[in-house]
Design a protein around this nucleic acid. Structure first.
Length: 291
DNA sequence: CAAGCGTGGGC
DNA sequence: TGCCCAAGCTT
C-alpha cells in the first residue's frame, strides 16, 4: 500500500470553495466540448480560449458538424489562439471520431491517445474529466505543485520524467475522487501555486509544502527558456496565415509578399504552411486556407 | 530528444 | 522593456 496522500483533503476542500466557473466544467458539458477545450488550452491561457471555445461550440456542437467542414474553416475560426495546427488536429479528430467511433468521443485512454494532437496529458485529461476515469493528469500546473509540495523544488524538470509519473500515480485517490483530485491540483497550480509570485498565503497545503518549508530556495541551474519571437519563422508564418484567415477565398501572392520583407524567409515560411496543411497553392498561383 | 510551433499579457 | 509564461504535441 502506498502512503496515504496527505495533500488530498486540503486540496479537495480548497477546490470546493475556489474553483473557477468554467463552461467546460459544467455538469452538462459534452465529451466533445471537453476535448475541444483541452486542445485549445494547450499552451494557451483560459481567458483567450473562452470566447473561441464558445463560438466553436455554437457552430460545431458535435464532431459530425465539424467533420462536415473543410479544414480551412477550422483554421479560420481558430482566430488568433496560436499554434493553428491545433485547429487542423481538432478537425482531424472530428473526422476520426465520426469515421472510427460512430460519432462519439472514445472513452478509453488509448483510443484518445490515438487521436491527432492528443498526447499523454490530453488523453488523461479527457478520460478523467469527461469520462471520470482514474488517471494521473500531469500538466505543467500539476508538475509544478508536486515539484514544490513534495520534492521541494521551485520548478519541475523541463520534460516529464518517470519519477514524476510515479509520484503522480502514487498520489491518485480512489476512483470516486480521482477526477476531482486531478482538476483540483491543476486549479491550485493555476490560481495559487503559480510559476512566478506563488501565493503561499492562500495555499491550503502551505504547512505541508517541502519547498516553502525549505525557505523557498530559488531554482538552481540554467535559465529555463530562451525563445525570442521577433524575426522568426514563427512570426512570419503567423503574419502569412493571418492574411489567409481574413480573406475569404484565394489570395494573390502579392498580398502575402507585403507582410514580410525578407523574401527567402517568407518563401520558406509559406512552403512550411503548405507542407503543414495550413495553406494551399492553387493552379493560378494564388493561396488559400485548405479546402 | 531537443527543437519547432503562435500569440498576447504580466511584471 | 524585454523576458517569461500559458491545461503540449510532433518529429
Amino acid at each position: 500500500m502506498p502512503e496515504s496522500n496527505r495533500l488530498l483533503e486540503p486540496i479537495l476542500d480548497w477546490y470546493a470553495g475556489n474553483a473557477r466557473d468554467l463552461p467546460w466544467r459544467a455538469p452538462g458539458a459534452s465529451p466533445w466540448s471537453i476535448l475541444v477545450s483541452e486542445i485549445m488550452l494547450q499552451q494557451t491561457p483560459v481567458v483567450r480560449v473562452l470566447p473561441v471555445w464558445t463560438e466553436w461550440m455554437e457552430r460545431w456542437p458535435t464532431p459530425a458538424s465539424l467533420a462536415r467542414e473543410s479544414p480551412g474553416e477550422a483554421v479560420r475560426h481558430w482566430g488568433r489562439l496560436g499554434y493553428p495546427r491545433r485547429a487542423l488536429n481538432l478537425h482531424a479528430c472530428a473526422r476520426a471520431i465520426t469515421e472510427r467511433h460512430g460519432g462519439e468521443v472514445p472513452t478509453g485512454h488509448d483510443a484518445l491517445l490515438a487521436l491527432p494532437g492528443v498526447g499523454e496529458y490530453t488523453a488523461a485529461a479527457v478520460a478523467s474529466f469527461a469520462f471520470k476515469g482514474r488517471h494521473a493528469v500531469l500538466d505543467t500546473n500539476v508538475r509544478r505543485v508536486l515539484a514544490r509540495a513534495v520534492s521541494g523544488q521551485e520548478y519541475p524538470p523541463k520534460a516529464t520524467t518517470p519519477p514524476e509519473r510515479r509520484l503522480a500515480a502514487s498520489l491518485l485517490p480512489d476512483a470516486d475522487r480521482a477526477p476531482v483530485w486531478a482538476v483540483a491540483v491543476m486549479e491550485l497550480g493555476a490560481l495559487v501555486c503559480t510559476a512566478r509570485a506563488a501565493r503561499c498565503a492562500d495555499c491550503p497545503i502551505s504547512d505541508l509544502c517541502a519547498w516553502r518549508l525549505a525557505g523557498k530556495p530559488a531554482h538552481d541551474g540554467p535559465a529555463r527558456r530562451g525563445q525570442t519571437y521577433a524575426g522568426t519563422d514563427r512570426q512570419c508564418r503567423g503574419r502569412l496565415l493571418a492574411v489567409l484567415r481574413q480573406a475569404h477565398g484565394a489570395v494573390p501572392k502579392d498580398a502575402l509578399d507585403v507582410v514580410w520583407d525578407d523574401a527567402p524567409q517568407r518563401e520558406r515560411a509559406l512552403d512550411g504552411l503548405v507542407t503543414d496543411g495550413l495553406a494551399e497553392v492553387l493552379d493560378d498561383g494564388t493561396y488559400r486556407l485548405p479546402g
